[in-house]
Nucleic acid binder design. Sequence first.
RNA 1: GGCGCGGUGGCAGAGUGGCCAUGCAGGGGACUGCAACUCCCCGUACGCCGGUUCGAUUCCGACCCGCGCCUCCA
Length: 457
Amino acid sequence: MTDPLTIKLTDSLSRKKQEFIPLDPNHVKLYACGPTVYNYAHLGNGRMAVVYDLWARLLRHAYPKVTYVSNITDVEDKIITAAKESGQEIAVITEKYTKIYNDDMATLGVGLPDIQPKATEHIQEMIDQIAQLIERGHAYEAEGHVLFNVPSDPSYGALSGRSRDEQVAGARVEIAPYKRDAADFVLWKPSTNDQPGWDSPWGVGRPGWHIECSAMAEKHLGLPFDLHGGGADLKFPHHENEIAQSCCAHGHPEKVNSFANYWIHNGFVTVDGEKMSKSLGNFLLVHDLIKDHKGEVLRLALLSAHYRQPLDWSAQVLHQSQVLLDKLYTKLLELKDVQADIGEIPMSIMTALCDDLNTPLAIAELNKMLKEKEGVELKSQLLAVGSLIGILQENPDEWLVQDHSNIDVSKVEGLIKERAEAKKNKNFARSDAIRDELLSIGIEINDTRDGTTWQKT
RNA sequence: GGCGCGGUGGCAGAGUGGCCAUGCAGGGGACUGCAACUCCCCGUACGCCGGUUCGAUUCCGACCCGCGCCUCCA
């Protein structure tokens, strides 16, 4: 890598696309908020995982060392609810869904982050940070709770563009009486006997949601670090609060990038134009989708829109990804005997990815490349692109092989043989009838110079 | 109400001050006994109204429409 790559990204903090300049070019640090493990991961979780996995891959391509941290939230009130409803221990639930999450993401070609910290293993770090906030006058104890005092942070709202007053005006929930300010949020809350709890200077309790990411990012990456990512919905309040906690804990409330230098946010997945929700019954789980679709098809589909844009999931999106991957694997199969190592990423594709991870453009360039190049050059570049973006990792033979388990192969081949006879005798009426018959049982035939092949439609 | 995002050809989806996105679907052609596969070709898209400009889908302003967040959420 002689020529240093210039990566541009849209920074949510400055609201501008700008050049990424690492704090330390020898060690780039990325943090992305991971899932709360109380259920199967949905497509939105999948998109988040794929997007930041690709950011990590791109950064690794450009810099010698990258540490990518993405957490598992394993203490949260939804988990408590899930435990009560299912009668299972909390740890059983969180371990189960953590494993399923990682397995499902692996199917999407998502590598494990370099570090995957769990909230429950960082309670002490959270307590320490809360204590620091109290010490510096940014947090206070009230009725067993510890709250972050929003008015004590002059920079609060820098990320979301929301002032404290606006937040209060928009509040749709009742304001707890122990809050000094309506905008204050919980750092620590008391636990009853049937809720998970840890000893703390403020009694037995559990952390609020936002503090875990502040504590874990700092522990594993140090402050400040380069990039912090997550879903667009986390911008407020979660990320806003993370900034407040981390900057204030270290006495830099006015320096909003003293926590993370750049912020990146991915857009939502909608399904046929509607937001996924349980009530609409369009809540797509990765765990279900991988039963019917190959992981790479789902991954490519998730990358078919720019990561910051909303992505509308539909049969069409899947179809396009499937068709393209089939084409690519067919090409690789054709080039099976061509000796080629992983080559260079074509400039056009690299440029697209370096421009704020423009995957739709990169895919378009991939299509062009498929047309314009051939032989060793094509194969080596396909392998290079595939290994960077996380596709084409399967054996082409296996990818293209069909599942014939519920087909009467001998019958199909018998008919094809009969058709060949009919064709030889110029009995085209009979041969066409056979073709129609095969089609009616879902078999499509394909005459080639070397005979007739068939496949499921 | 506040904050933010977006409206591109049948669909998906980039991008740009003047020239090609790309893919899927569709149409035409080559090939084929006829098909399929493959290959080639094709469609004058940029929400609406003003403004700046020699020229705007692209810049500026107003308007209309859609979406997200403000409550747990990727």
